[in-house]
């Protein structure tokens, strides 16, 4: 790791203000940031530890929703009784990811902000437009089996690795933030992640030094909650394809995909086709897909997984 100075923030406001220091980054759990710092992919010169600024609560909101603090650990979020009963898709998604040790340390905001595991992003000997803008994309003509089939560009085909984010996309989560000047705002998760386009190094719509304070879930929808993750191993592996689904009594549903795109992939207007059938729905959902030869299998894998989820969970 490159040398850095370190401070422990005491409040969200103080953390956001401290972030204006050049080369500063927030440190929450650190399970992704420290991994990248050891490889010198991330090179902050100043770390602001936000582990103890009081953002570790899960609280109900007046309209029946749930506000999840940015520093809530993944284990605690998955195990929360309200999440398990009313937002089970979120619990299932969290439990499908990482390992027990990682879930105990990783946080809500860190999970949203974690970076791709594309092997070329990780290999600092290889050209990578995300890591070094303009250097090229080694993945497009390389080993791309695990990478994106949709939402990608000629500059980058990296996927977002988070399971939690897929569930939050299906749940229409709102990401709440505070800026250094103290102003707060809420960013719908559907507007939080940027697609790579020509600038794969820009991953979210957060402004510089903007701190995520919480994630807001709307009032529970009921219905059947499923998170089906297809991967090479039974545990402790990233998704090739994952399907997060909320299936409601009236036959409608909300479905988001993981493992196939630079962000959780959802198409709200396509969801009216869920009742028509998996084939029609998947076809709309994956319209415009540009897979590589190595990952084209994901297109039929998505359809079959959605078919399975719908068949197994329809009464």
């Amino acid at each position: 790791m490159k040398p850095f100075t370190y401070e422990r923030a005491e409040t969200p406001a103080q953390a956001a203000a401290a972030a204006s220091k050049p080369g500063a980054k927030f440190l929450a759990g650190g399970t992704n940031l420290l991994d990248l710092m050891k490889l010198q992919i991330e090179t902050p010169t100043h770390l602001i530890d936000i582990g103890r600024i009081g953002l570790d609560k899960i609280e109900p909101t007046p309209d029946g929703g749930l506000r999840i603090g940015a520093l809530v650990r993944n284990t605690d979020l998955a195990a929360d009784p309200r999440v398990r009963t009313e937002y089970a898709i979120l619990s299932r998604a969290l439990l499908a990811g990482a390992s027990g040790q990682l879930r105990n340390k990783a946080t809500t905001s860190g999970n949203l902000l974690q970076r791709t595991r594309c092997p070329y992003f990780y290999d600092t000997n290889q050209p990578c437009n995300k890591r070094s803008p303009g250097s090229g994309c080694s993945a497009i003509a390389g080993f791309s089996r695990q990478l994106a089939v949709i939402g990608s560009s000629d500059a980058c085909i990296a996927t977002h690795p988070s399971d939690m984010a897929v569930a939050m996309m299906a749940l229409d989560a709102l990401i709440e933030t505070v800026k250094p000047d103290g102003k707060t705002r809420g960013i719908p998760i559907s507007e939080f992640y940027r697609l790579p386009g020509k600038t794969p190094h820009l991953e979210t719509t957060l402004e510089k030094n903007e701190l995520i304070t919480s994630v807001l879930l709307p009032a529970p929808l009921g219905g059947i909650h499923v998170y089906h993750k297809v991967r090479d191993r039974a545990s402790y592996a990233f998704a090739l394809v994952s399907v997060g689904a909320i299936l409601l009594k009236d036959g409608s549903g909300k479905i988001a995909l993981g493992g196939v795109a630079p962000r959780p992939w959802r198409n709200v207007s396509a969801e009216k086709l869920i009742q028509t059938g998996a084939k029609e729905f998947t076809s709309r959902l994956l319209e415009g897909a540009r897979p590589t030869q190595e990952n084209a299998f994901k297109l039929s894998l998505v359809q079959r997984t959605i078919e399975g989820v719908l068949t197994e969970n329809r009464s």
Partner: peptide, 29 residues
């Protein structure tokens, strides 16, 4: 592995298991 992938570095912090390789000592005041 020093990268949180193998678990050989597992210790208990406040009763919870974590990978100590992916934690700064400074985080444990």
């Amino acid at each position: 592995c020093d990268h949180g992938q193998c678990g050989a570095c597992t210790v208990l912090v406040n009763g919870r298991r974590i990978n100590s390789c992916l934690s700064l000592a400074l985080q444990h005041q």
